Computed example of a mutant assay.
Amino acid sequence: MVVPEQVVEPSHVPVLRDRIVDLLAPSLAQPGSVYLDCTLGLGGHASAVLARCPNARLVGIDRDPAALAVAGRRLATFGNRVHLYQAVYHELAEVLAEDGTRSVQAICMDLGLSSLQIDDRERGFAYAVDAPLDMRMDSGQDLTAETLVNTAAPGELVRILREYGDEKFADRIVRRVVEARAKAPIRTSADLVALVDQAIPMAARTRSGHPAKRTFQALRIAVNAELTSLAAALPAALDALAPGGRLAVLAYHSGEDRLVKRAFAEASSDHVPPGLPAVPAALQARFALLTRGAERPTPSETAANPRAAAARLRAIEHKEDAA
């Protein structure tokens, strides 16, 4: 596996690292405990969990082979406690089967982009630098942002920008894109940024960060099918937790957080028909919430790591006495 030289050892500040370790560590105290990191990235959260929990071993998965290579070097000090797999997080059941693991005691999902993907300019995730319009987390997949921008129907592009980017100027941006691609393919991030800049009214360009931020976010989510994958991963993760096991999820986008909130609310609610005087054990909630709403980074963490600003943390526990 070859990793570009400029991204072999990137800087990395795990978001809400200490809080996540505090939430997950109680379930990893027993010998033989398993910690599943569904979005390993550069291994920042995994390293902290393994250091705090010496009885635990790691099953780490990531769709990005470059991230796995960097994480593998970072986690090598933990020896045979580390088992790494290239996969998308909705494939966690298949990964655990391959690992020979029936259930786990703790799971972390840190959604969105890793520092590696943001910092590697050639991968086209960043709107602030000119690069090919790629945006694939797994470079082996076929669909790229360039393909999507140049071939998707206008109505589909509008839907993507509105649903995944909350972009209220989606119609205007897509009109510019369609006009431009009719003359020549849109191939680079600079090309797309210029079109977005032209489409958004001057008065709205500086209200909430870079004018292309929402467009790039939406295209990245669409290219990598992130919300579809998350919708499948959440029930699979809950099913994989042993009694007493805990799941922590860091979301950075309102669509992600809505999926997590709904899944956790469903799992932590009794399912009782109206009028039933008591809740039978089979209908009682199998899980309990560990966080009240979504926890956010402290101002000091956000100041030290601006990428943490949008993070929302939710955690849930599989009840020990669940049926």
Rank of each mutant, 00 (worst) to 15 (best):
70 V>A: 03
70 V>R: 00
70 V>L: 03
70 V>W: 00
70 V>M: 01
71 A>M: 10
71 A>D: 03
72 G>K: 01
72 G>M: 05
72 G>C: 04
72 G>R: 02
73 R>L: 11
73 R>Y: 08
73 R>M: 10
75 L>W: 05
75 L>G: 03
75 L>T: 01
76 A>Q: 14
76 A>M: 10
77 T>H: 13
77 T>V: 14
78 F>N: 10
78 F>H: 13
78 F>P: 07
79 G>M: 08
79 G>K: 04
80 N>E: 12
80 N>K: 08
80 N>W: 01
81 R>W: 09
81 R>G: 11
82 V>R: 04
82 V>W: 01
83 H>N: 13
83 H>M: 13
83 H>Q: 14
84 L>M: 12
85 Y>H: 06
86 Q>A: 11
86 Q>D: 06
86 Q>N: 05
86 Q>V: 07
86 Q>K: 11
87 A>E: 04
87 A>S: 09
87 A>I: 05
87 A>N: 04
87 A>C: 07
88 V>Y: 06
88 V>C: 10
88 V>K: 14
88 V>M: 09
89 Y>E: 03
89 Y>A: 03
89 Y>Q: 06
89 Y>P: 03
89 Y>S: 03
90 H>S: 15
90 H>Q: 15
91 E>H: 12
91 E>I: 12
92 L>E: 02
92 L>S: 09
92 L>K: 12
92 L>W: 10
92 L>P: 08
93 A>Q: 11
93 A>S: 11
94 E>K: 14
94 E>D: 15
95 V>P: 00
95 V>F: 01
95 V>Q: 00
96 L>M: 10
96 L>Y: 06
96 L>N: 06
96 L>F: 06
96 L>G: 04
97 A>C: 09
97 A>N: 10
97 A>H: 11
97 A>M: 09
98 E>T: 15
98 E>G: 15
99 D>F: 00
99 D>K: 05
100 G>Y: 02
101 T>C: 13
101 T>W: 08
101 T>R: 13
101 T>N: 07
102 R>F: 12
102 R>I: 13
102 R>Q: 15
103 S>G: 05
103 S>C: 08
103 S>I: 03
103 S>Y: 02
105 Q>S: 14
105 Q>H: 13
105 Q>V: 12
106 A>R: 08
106 A>S: 11
106 A>Y: 09
107 I>D: 04
107 I>S: 07
107 I>F: 07
107 I>Q: 06
108 C>R: 02
108 C>M: 14
108 C>P: 00
109 M>C: 08
109 M>N: 05
110 D>K: 02
111 L>Q: 02
111 L>Y: 00
111 L>T: 05
112 G>V: 02
112 G>T: 06
112 G>S: 07
113 L>W: 00
113 L>Y: 00
114 S>K: 00
116 L>Q: 02
116 L>E: 02
116 L>W: 00
116 L>F: 03
117 Q>L: 04
117 Q>G: 05
117 Q>W: 02
119 D>N: 14
119 D>S: 13
119 D>H: 10
119 D>E: 15
119 D>K: 08
120 D>V: 05
120 D>S: 14
121 R>V: 15
121 R>A: 15
122 E>P: 02
122 E>Y: 01
122 E>H: 07
122 E>D: 15
122 E>A: 13
122 E>G: 14
123 R>K: 07
123 R>Q: 02
126 A>I: 02
126 A>N: 04
127 Y>M: 14
127 Y>C: 09
128 A>F: 06
